[in-house]
Design a protein around this nucleic acid. Sequence first.
RNA 1: CGGAGCGUAGCUCAGCCUGGCUAGAGCACUUGGUUUGGGACCAAGACGUCGCAGGUUCAAAUCCUGUCGCUCCGACCA
Length: 582
Amino acid sequence: MRWTQTLIPTLKETPAEAELASHKLLLRAGLIRKLTGGLYTFLPLGLRVLRKVEQIVREEMNRAGALEVLMPALQPPEIWQKSGRYETAKDVLFKVRDRAKKEWVLGPTHEEVITSLVAGEINSYRQMPKNFYQIQTKFRDEIRPRFGLMRAKEFIMKDAYSFDATDEGAQESYRKMYDAYARIFQRCGLKTIAVEADTGVMGGKFSHEFMVPAEAGENEVVFCEACGYAANVEKATSAVAPSAPAPASAAALEEFATPGVLTIEALSRPPYTAAAERQIKTLVYIADSKPVVILLRGDDQLNEAKLAGTLGTANFRPADAAPEMDQAVFAELGAQPGSLGAVRERLIGQAAKYPVYADQRLEGAGGMTTGANRDGFHLRNVSVPRDIQVTAWADLRLVQAGEPCPKCRQPLKVQRAIEVGHVFKLGTKYSVALNALFLDEAGKQNPAVMGCYGIGVTRTMQAVIEQSHDEQGIIWPFSVAPYSVCITPLNVEPASDLMKRAEQIYSQLSAQGVDVLLDDRNERPGVKFKDSELVGFPLRIGLGEKSLAKGEVELKPRTGPLMPVKVEEAVERTLALLREHR
RNA sequence: CGGAGCGUAGCUCAGCCUGGCUAGAGCACUUGGUUUGGGACCAAGACGUCGCAGGUUCAAAUCCUGUCGCUCCGACCA
């Protein structure tokens, strides 16, 4: 392709709308343009990258034995009602109406469609295992689209769904996808870590996310360099020490005045000096419209994902002074936040019936300080086993960097990351709901055991840029670069020897099947160099009068030194470099 | 949805506080010329419903109200 014949609208200045380096570069390098918030057009160069990522995904899915299909993006709401997600996923569902006013759904994902298909087409254990995948546009009514392609209303996802006759078979399907994902991201030049992920309230068996470490990521992963333990912070646990136990001869509860003290921090300072780890933090949440009390150690933070698992619902929020209903809850408890506690004898009336969920770390703790359910007062000498009636113990705390690894006790690290892929062992939730049943060897009817597997293709493309760029621009790996080679003649007069040489190299490389771009613009050298570095072609072949006088052209890898080579050897040397990176 | 900020040329922004003459700059674009190994220079030119609607005023980009859009922080997720 010739530069003057395609459209590569590079920008010298950074568009005001972009925050992330990768988002800025997508715009500046002329890969995408925004139509409106969360919706982007892929320009010729951006589309080439996207297609290359898709092709890698396709090859690896095929290698893993998955079958490519293409399902409708426009879907009937009935199947969503059957699975129950018409309600549970209502916030992300785009809905449209046809001329008869009938409602349709724009697919945010395709479990319902594929399971409906399989229900009709697969009836025997002999037809399994099967794994179907597609690369397709998804629609999600994101609350807040942001960061360019990272979180868009419309994006391209590779989704796959496996169907097995047995649980062991499903494990094997899961493992194959896990391995395929590792290969896919590696081929895209991405460093990823696979982390244990929260299965949420859907209660799937287990799940891994593929994360690209990056400060710009929206997730946090906890990992151990010593033993390889890695988990999403929502799921992560650690081997933190339990709290100091209640002494044998426990002192009696004692109320003391703490005027104006509303925080753990304030209570840990003089004149009170109750260390944070000797305090009990009391939180009140409204879950499914009912108040619940949550207890953590003073120096711990609540992990809301774990709370969701414990409560069995994601429909909860912290109680807040504003809504009247919440005010009634605080009135029942006898105090405002800052003076709340869960000591049995202080919970009277309705408050005595509020369920109390306590973090495991408090189990057996003694000598603690907590709110007295009376504004401006706290209680000391609290013994958890003696004074607090706990409805259920659970792991509710957020793991912090430096805590001991749950497997090997070495210090854990925390890193921000971008989620590019997710593998999920689903079980039979959808096959039961949508009747995907089969007959086993014994002639007995069973629901298929499913797994689902997603890769954000457009997000992966941006993640590559986020992980691989410098001040000059993008640094594309050969595998997904829009063009592997950019030929940069510094004189584009058609009659010039220099341009003839450039044309010759261009046609020879093209004939060898190399993705090559000829920068035939009549621009000054600086402009051409800057642009080729901004776009990030892995290899540039520079042709200038000076070096050509010596019979040389210049090979310039994006991040390597300039390599003068004989004109006659330019094509061969280029092909050799490309082979090295295959 | 809650909180914060921003809407002026294709892009980056100034002007707004303290209303006033023909609404500006740089980049990009067009034409001509000079240049040509790291984002050139000279000259001439084209490009604006100042997001939109209403109000205040002799007069509104500027003040007020509403509205729409965008960006950032939180809940959602590939």
